[in-house]
Design a protein around this nucleic acid. Structure first.
Length: 317
DNA sequence: AGCACA
């Protein structure tokens, strides 16, 4: 226990704090959003549900992986800590909001995060954290910066999947957020070649059941007349993409996508969950891990149940 | 919710 889950993967950010290529002159261009509202330019999310002893750093380390993350802050004034996180665009913020929603922040204290779009943007001061006039302890905490401005310059990393599965005792609910996989947000970055068609948006998905992670994804809720090219265009651009198979069923279309490894699959599972394509009809696609990965057959080995007990009987580190 | 192909 007590093993604070520190992932050994440290983000390699760009040190130069002043090198902002075109950031100042390039306001984020929102992707075509049918339901634009007055709150369109809020790119800050409000996060509650922290345990009382949450640390600024914890929140920052959680958020720093998210695309477009710029800064975060915790306000310890009220009953319980209130977190705020600023992103580089409303889309990024929205995606982060969805990703963090209902995240189990601390299983022991049963802390579950709740996120909303903030009422107004988090104000980030450049330079020194607090000026001498109002050195308020509760406001002093602020992190983040402009090192993570756009999306990742390169696919950052592909660490092994989280060891959540198979943890006895505590059945982790299918948290919609996987800290190991960023999600690409619609093309709002300044200088991305945009090789792959971005989804036109994201819709919330109730993904109740899923299968254990594997290198193959099952895509559902595609409607009956999806444009296969659109699908292929979207997925073939994903890192680790190998092949895809579309299945036209009675009233529905489903699709299988194989990736190089489970990590790439997991990333896409997170990245494109709920992605909306123009031809989808309605709603977003539902992404699950396939029951049967490509290339692996159902285990009808030779008629026998094939209980190859190769599995280690003792678990020790 | 709908899971094929080798």
């Amino acid at each position: 226990m007590a093993g604070a889950s520190i992932h050994p993967y440290h983000q390699q950010w760009m040190p130069p704090p002043q090198a902002q290529p075109a950031a100042a002159a390039a306001p984020p261009i929102p992707v075509e959003n049918p339901n634009r509202s007055a709150t369109d330019d809020v790119r800050t999310i409000f996060i509650s549900g922290f345990p009382g002893d949450v640390k600024e750093r914890e929140l920052h380390n959680l958020l720093r992986w998210l695309p477009g993350f710029e800064a975060s802050q915790i306000n310890f004034k009220g009953e319980q800590p209130m977190g705020f996180a600023l992103f580089s665009s409303p889309q990024h913020a929205m995606a982060a909001k969805n990703a963090l929603q209902d995240l189990v922040f601390d299983a022991e204290t049963k802390s579950v995060l709740h996120t909303e779009m903030a009422k107004k943007n988090l104000f980030v001061k450049r330079g020194v954290v607090a000026n001498s006039s109002s050195l308020d302890q509760s406001k002093r905490l602020r992190t983040g910066g402009d090192y993570n401005y756009a999306s990742y310059p390169t696919p950052p990393f592909h660490p092994p999947p989280p060891p959540v599965y198979g943890t006895p005792g505590y059945m982790a609910p299918p948290a919609p957020y996987d800290p190991y996989g960023g999600y690409p947000v619609p093309q709002v970055s300044m200088h991305t070649p945009a090789p792959m068609p971005a989804p036109s948006g994201y819709a919330p998905i109730q993904n109740t059941k899923d299968n254990p992670p594997c290198n193959t994804l099952f895509i559902g809720n595609l409607g009956e007349n999806v444009n296969e090219e659109e699908l292929r265009g979207l997925f073939s651009g994903q890192p680790g993409y190998k092949q895809m198979k579309v299945l036209h069923q009675e009233r529905n279309t489903v699709c299988f996508i194989e990736f190089d490894d489970v990590n790439s699959a997991t990333a896409v599972h997170q990245n494109l969950q709920g992605a909306v394509l123009p031809s989808l009809g309605r709603g977003g696609m539902r992404i699950q891990f396939s029951k049967n990965p490509f290339g692996r057959r159902k285990d009808t080995v030779n008629g026998s149940a094939a209980e190859h007990n190769v599995a280690p009987t003792t678990y020790q580190q």
